[in-house]
Simulated assay, not measured.
Amino acid sequence: METSGVPPSRSTVSRTAVLVLRILTFVFLLIALILIAINKDSDLGVKFSDVYSYRYMISTIVIGFAYNLLQMAFSFFGLVSGNRVITGNGGYLFDFYGDKVISYLLATGCGAGFGASKDLHNATDGYDLSNFFAKSYASASLLLFGFLFTAVASIFSSYALPKKAY
Score class of each variant (00 low, 15 high):
residue 99 D to F: 12
residue 105 L to S: 09
residue 125 D to E: 13
residue 99 D to H: 15
residue 160 A to D: 09
residue 8 P to A: 11
residue 162 P to L: 08
residue 41 D to G: 03
residue 75 S to R: 05
residue 78 G to F: 02
residue 66 A to S: 05
residue 137 Y to F: 13
residue 79 L to I: 07
residue 93 L to F: 11
residue 131 N to C: 04
residue 10 R to D: 12
residue 95 D to C: 09
residue 4 S to R: 07
residue 40 K to G: 11
residue 146 G to P: 06
residue 69 L to Y: 10
residue 157 S to M: 01
residue 40 K to S: 14
residue 37 A to S: 15
residue 77 F to R: 06
residue 68 N to S: 08
residue 113 G to Q: 06
residue 19 L to Y: 01
residue 96 F to W: 12
residue 78 G to I: 04
residue 135 K to D: 10
residue 3 T to G: 13
residue 123 A to G: 00
residue 121 H to T: 06
residue 159 Y to L: 14
residue 89 N to V: 07
residue 19 L to C: 02
residue 98 G to H: 08
residue 7 P to I: 04
residue 132 F to Q: 08
residue 49 S to D: 10
residue 5 G to D: 07
residue 72 M to T: 11
residue 86 I to P: 09
residue 127 Y to L: 15
residue 108 T to V: 11
residue 20 V to K: 00
residue 62 V to N: 00
residue 93 L to N: 08
residue 12 T to K: 10
residue 154 S to P: 00
residue 1 M to E: 13
residue 42 S to L: 10
residue 40 K to R: 15
residue 55 R to S: 11
residue 119 D to Q: 06
residue 79 L to M: 04
residue 84 R to V: 01
residue 110 C to H: 05
residue 154 S to N: 03
residue 52 Y to P: 13
residue 63 I to G: 01
residue 95 D to Q: 09
residue 56 Y to F: 12
residue 84 R to T: 11
residue 10 R to V: 07
residue 49 S to V: 06
residue 116 A to D: 11
residue 127 Y to P: 00
residue 69 L to Q: 00
residue 57 M to D: 00
residue 5 G to I: 03
residue 163 K to W: 03
residue 116 A to R: 06
residue 110 C to K: 00
residue 32 A to E: 03
residue 18 V to E: 10
residue 135 K to V: 01
residue 91 G to F: 09
residue 8 P to K: 08
residue 141 S to D: 05
residue 161 L to F: 07
residue 117 S to T: 13
residue 43 D to V: 15
residue 31 I to V: 15
residue 80 V to Y: 12
residue 78 G to Q: 04
residue 2 E to T: 10
residue 45 G to A: 09
residue 164 K to Y: 06
residue 63 I to D: 02
residue 49 S to F: 14
residue 8 P to M: 12
residue 7 P to Y: 01
residue 121 H to C: 08
residue 16 T to A: 15
residue 97 Y to R: 04
residue 108 T to A: 11
residue 78 G to Y: 04
residue 65 F to D: 01
residue 105 L to M: 14
residue 83 N to V: 02
residue 94 F to N: 07
residue 114 F to V: 13
residue 38 I to F: 12
residue 118 K to M: 05
residue 7 P to D: 08
residue 129 L to T: 12
residue 131 N to L: 04
residue 20 V to T: 09
residue 30 L to C: 06
residue 87 T to M: 04
residue 134 A to L: 10
residue 86 I to Y: 14
residue 82 G to M: 09
residue 160 A to K: 09
residue 116 A to P: 06
residue 44 L to S: 13
residue 161 L to P: 03
residue 31 I to S: 04
residue 65 F to G: 00
residue 8 P to F: 11
